[in-house]
Design a protein around this nucleic acid. Structure first.
Length: 598
RNA sequence: GCUGGCGUAGCUCAGCUGGUAGAGCAGCUGACUUGUAAUCAGCAGGUCACCAGUUCAAAUCUGGUCGCCAGCUCCA
């Protein structure tokens, strides 16, 4: 959506019209920002002591219809700062005054003049553009959606305003279509599917953000771990295991205390006069393994991998299903290497990302080069090192042909990152995977190696987690696959459905054979009807249903009904059916997609 | 943590303006043994999130606590 687009103008104009309607109903309201966004627009208001809730939206909408029908024209005028401030103050718009001053101070106002848009009696400081007349706004193409809080200027220390979101499209059809799509998307919500498919559980008595993985959900974790271990073995990683708890000293050394304290659970005091913390990250433990004895350059790159459990104290309101949790297991590894190895190692990690993402068919992401912010005290103070290592990562990404955007203030406190950002089905964007270049911890932990020239040098450290945490990765996979996993990851790989009792012997024989080959197989020998069994297996999104009737018994075959291709069943003899299944497992075939043949 | 909303059986939900709870699915039992998405019947399931208060009477009204949802802040 570009500024010149009609849709942009419509949404932007609707924000004004909504503010106008709100001001009409609540004359003392103060306005914050009101921009167009992806699906519509929003406007932030300070209602003072008046409580406004979703029940009030209808009323505001009605007012908006009236304004639109009055065919008011949008006109622009300009004022220098002092006159603008005077006018805004007279209007009681103190938030706008603050912003006007800032625009002029930072030179964002052209010729020091601020632009205002007026339609009817309503005036708002604004860059535009807008539609010419309110009649251009499709009266059935918008709908006030929801209401929420939002800090002024996104700063939690400043007042909380009330944000009203509206949906807006060029036609009523598009609006309805959007709402329909959103409802459909809700069916794939990982929290809903997690319960329906018995993947995980979050229990109040255990605690918010502390998921319990049910037997079926744990299969998915186990399969990802198995895969990661194979891949990491081939890539020269060593697997290690370290405890989830540590003394505070480790975190004073690493700098997590105090840098990271607010994201950590409070310490446990024990009678040995030490404080113990649940670990929020695995890195320090791995650094200790590196530092266990003197290292030689011959050992580098030295790669330590662990699916490590971590615990972070996330603010209550930000927890969400498996997407944001307080206990998680990270596909973690640390690569200790020389400076001239950094490039190759980082590129190899990018190779791993590509392997995993291609296989899982995760294509809808963006890559972010996360840089430090010199103005923030969140980061280790060493500007030269920051610029140096940021340039290394930038060069690597360019060399590897990765397209990315750069963002300041998103780095880890100890180094720049390459982050993979994915949007979930509600449109919330999160970092799934991250790869970080660390120029700080080696010194903090006094990590060294004997270089070829006999001197002691500090290794560089690459932190990487291509498969993310199980929690976040699996939440994306559930939503992306709609709960239908490929055979190799699926909690139940084959469901046998006998047509009648005479088929049971053959069914049991098949089940035993598959079980002996360590396939997850079930027989539906319940007294349900045949149709019901098919339905049950399908709603559980089991990838393969094998139907066994008299015909299959007599020629030792199976009728193979794939979840992804329910209309195209295969008749396969038993021996080759097992062979196919073996291949689907060993090759990790993504048979949950209907373009995949088996 | 902040703003707003919500909280009834395992799940999805009904229960009008206060008169101490109901359905479908799931579960259990029995009958039916079925060729591609719900066979029939019966049984069992809830201190209506929790704690106070108002009232003769609270799932319903008020306050608080906890939890969930959306957004903000923060982050894998």
């Amino acid at each position: 959506m570009k500024e010149a687009d009609q849709l942009y103008k419509i949404r932007h104009s609707l924000a004004h019209i909504m503010a106008q309607a709100v001001q009409d109903i609540y004359p003392n309201v103060k306005m914050g920002f009101g921009p167009p966004v992806d699906n519509g627009f929003y406007y932030d208001f300070d209602f003072g002591d008046v409580k406004v809730s979703e029940a009030d939206l209808k009323n505001i909408e009605k007012k908006m219809y009236k304004i639109i029908n009055q065919k008011q024209e949008f006109s622009i005028f300009y004022k220098p700062l002092d006159q603008a401030v005077e006018m805004l103050e007279k209007m009681g718009q103190n938030y706008k005054v603050e912003y006007a001053r800032e625009l002029v101070e930072t030179g964002q106002a052209e010729n020091g003049e601020l632009s205002f848009y007026q339609n009817g009696p309503f005036v708002d400081m604004c860059e535009g553009p807008h539609v010419v007349q309110t009649s251009e706004v499709p009266i059935k193409g918008f709908k006030l959606d929801r209401i929420s809080g939002s800090y002024w200027r996104g700063d939690e220390k400043r007042p909380m305003l009330t944000r009203i979101y509206g949906l807006a499209f060029e036609t009523e059809e598009e609006l309805k279509d959007y709402i329909r799509r959103r409802e459909l998307a809700m069916q794939r919500d990982h929290r809903k599917l997690g319960t329906e498919l018995e993947l995980f559980l979050i229990d109040d008595e255990v605690g918010s953000g502390l998921p319990l993985w049910l037997p079926k959900g744990n299969v998915i974790r186990a399969e990802l771990e198995k895969w990661a271990k194979e891949v990491e073995f081939k890539a020269g990683y060593h697997q290690v295991s370290t405890p989830s708890i540590t003394k505070s000293e480790l975190y004073y050394r690493s700098g997590h205390l105090p840098y990271y304290k607010e994201s950590m659970f409070p310490p446990m005091a024990l009678d040995d006069n030490n404080e113990y913390y649940l670990r929020p990250m695995n890195c320090p433990h791995h650094h200790k393994i590196y530092g266990f004895r003197p290292r030689s350059y011959r050992e580098l790159p030295f790669r330590l991998a662990e699916y490590g459990d971590m615990f972070r104290y996330e603010k209550h309101g930000s927890l969400s299903g498996l997407l944001r949790v307080r206990a998680m297991t990270l596909n973690d590894a640390h690569i200790y290497c020389e400076l001239d190895q950094v490039k190759d190692e980082f590129k190899n990690v990018i190779g791993l990302y590509r392997l995993y993402y291609d296989k899982l068919r995760l294509g809808n992401f963006r890559v972010r080069l996360s840089l430090h912010d010199p103005a923030s005290d969140k980061y280790v103070k060493n500007e030269d090192m920051w610029l140096f290592s940021e340039q290394i990562v930038r060069d690597i990404l360019n060399d590897a042909g990765v397209s990315f955007i750069e963002e300041a203030g998103e780095a880890a406190f100890y180094g720049p990152k390459m982050d993979i950002q994915i949007k979930n089905l509600l449109g919330r964007e999160e970092t799934v995977s991250t790869c970080q270049l660390d120029f700080v911890m080696a010194e903090r932990f006094d990590l060294e190696y004997s270089a070829k020239d006999g001197t002691l040098k500090r290794p560089y450290i690459i932190h990487r987690a291509p498969l993310s945490t199980h929690e976040r990765m699996i939440s994306f996979l559930i939503e992306f696959y709609g709960g239908a996993f490929p055979t190799w990851m699926s909690p139940v790989q084959v469901l046998l459905v006998p047509v009648n009792e005479d088929c049971m012997d053959y069914c049991n024989e098949i089940a035993n054979t598959l079980f002996e080959s360590e396939f997850r197989v079930e027989i539906d020998d319940s007294s349900d009807s045949f149709n019901k069994k098919i339905r049950k297996g399908t709603t559980q999104k089991i990838p393969n249903i094998w139907i066994i009737g008299n015909e299959e018994v007599s020629n030792r075959s199976v009728t193979w009904r794939r979840y992804a291709r329910q209309q195209n069943q295969l008749k396969v003899d038993f021996t080759s059916a097992v062979e196919k299944l073996q291949f689907m497992r060993s090759d990790r075939v993504m048979d949950n997609f209907d373009d995949v043949e088996i």
